[in-house]
């Protein structure tokens, strides 16, 4: 064991020497590259992020809080949570089943299914919204039938939920497919030979193996579901207190020159982004740590 450590320390030392002499650019190039990336990040990320919070608190803490607890804002927050709360479990089921089917089974039309899953990435969200207007709108295919039965999709919550599901459905499947393909189906087959039922194999073997990838997919889906603007904007109708989600509410406030309130609501969305990033790094750190722990023990 000590021999292994010595060798790896030695090679690490070697690598450091090599980097400083043979394979490295001159110092001024390295610093210039770092400066360019930092300037870019500052301009496009840090400054806007700081601006959101300074603008939100410009008129004081009370204005900030009032902007968040006034009824229209609360209803926008509620609607956003409802839309995400419905879209998330549905896409969870769809994403896991699609990834499971694609990664573990051979069937006709598999490549078509993979392409279809990517569709929401390729289509503009506005078009996605328009599709639902064309189908369920008053002049749409089912419009007359639905208005006759007093059932509203467009300019109502169902439309918002539908649009949110559409734009978020690739995230979980996309996250899981490469992971499940890499893991293969050996473990599932081992489970079957040992007498486990299909459900037992799924709960005891497949799910634990994909849990970190799945969590990552859920976080991304949630972030997108809460932040989606384009598709939701088309189907929502912007009725205050009824069909406004948080991003739409921000836009309305901003258009009314109510900057402090607009940024206050926007700061919530920015916070959501920060929490998402923190969770994402935590998951990556967890998986990396597990891998290195295992390596150490296997070497013993």
């Amino acid at each position: 064991m000590s021999g292994v450590t010595n060798i790896s320390q030695y090679s690490r030392y070697n690598a450091r020497v090599a980097r400083s002499r043979a394979t490295s650019e001159p110092a001024w190039i390295r610093w210039a590259l770092i400066a360019v990336s930092l300037a870019f990040l500052t301009l496009f990320l840090f400054v806007p992020l700081a601006a959101v919070f300074t603008e939100a608190f410009r008129k004081g803490y009370e204005v900030y809080l009032n902007a968040l607890i006034e009824p229209d804002a609360l209803s926008a927050i509620k609607l956003t949570l409802i839309a995400a709360g419905i879209a998330l479990p549905l896409n969870l089921v769809f994403g896991v089943s699609a990834a499971w089917a694609i990664a573990k089974f051979e069937f006709r039309g598999k490549s078509v299914l993979i392409t279809l899953i990517d569709l929401p990435f390729a289509v503009s969200p506005v078009i996605a919204g328009l599709i639902y207007v064309l189908i369920f709108g008053l002049q749409g295919w089912f419009g007359e039938w639905m208005s006759a039965h007093d059932f509203k999709v467009i300019f109502a919550i169902p439309g918002i939920v539908l649009a949110t599901i559409f734009v978020t459905f690739p995230f979980i499947a996309r996250e899981l497919i490469p992971l499940m393909q890499a893991q293969g189906k050996d473990e599932e087959e081992a489970g079957l030979v040992l007498g486990a039922s299909g459900w037992q194999v799924f709960w005891k073997v497949t799910l634990p193996n994909i849990k970190w990838g799945l969590l990552y997919g859920i976080i991304l889906t949630n972030a997108r579901a809460m932040g989606e603007f384009g598709a939701v904007s088309v189907v929502s109708g912007h009725i205050r207190g009824l069909t406004n989600t948080m991003p739409l509410h921000v836009e309305i406030l901003y258009n009314e020159y109510n900057y402090a309130a607009a940024f206050a609501v926007a700061s919530l969305l920015a916070l959501l982004a920060l929490v998402t990033l923190a969770l994402k790094s935590f998951i990556e750190w967890q998986t990396a740590r597990q891998a290195s722990d295992n390596e150490k023990l296997a070497e013993e």
Partner: peptide, 24 residues
């Protein structure tokens, strides 16, 4: 059945791997 690459359940301990066939 012993698989070519063993196909041990990677998230279970050695004990749980061996116990799997009895627990299911």
């Amino acid at each position: 059945f012993v698989f070519q690459h063993y196909a041990l359940f990677r998230h279970m301990t050695v004990f749980e791997n061996v116990a799997f066939g009895l627990r299911v």
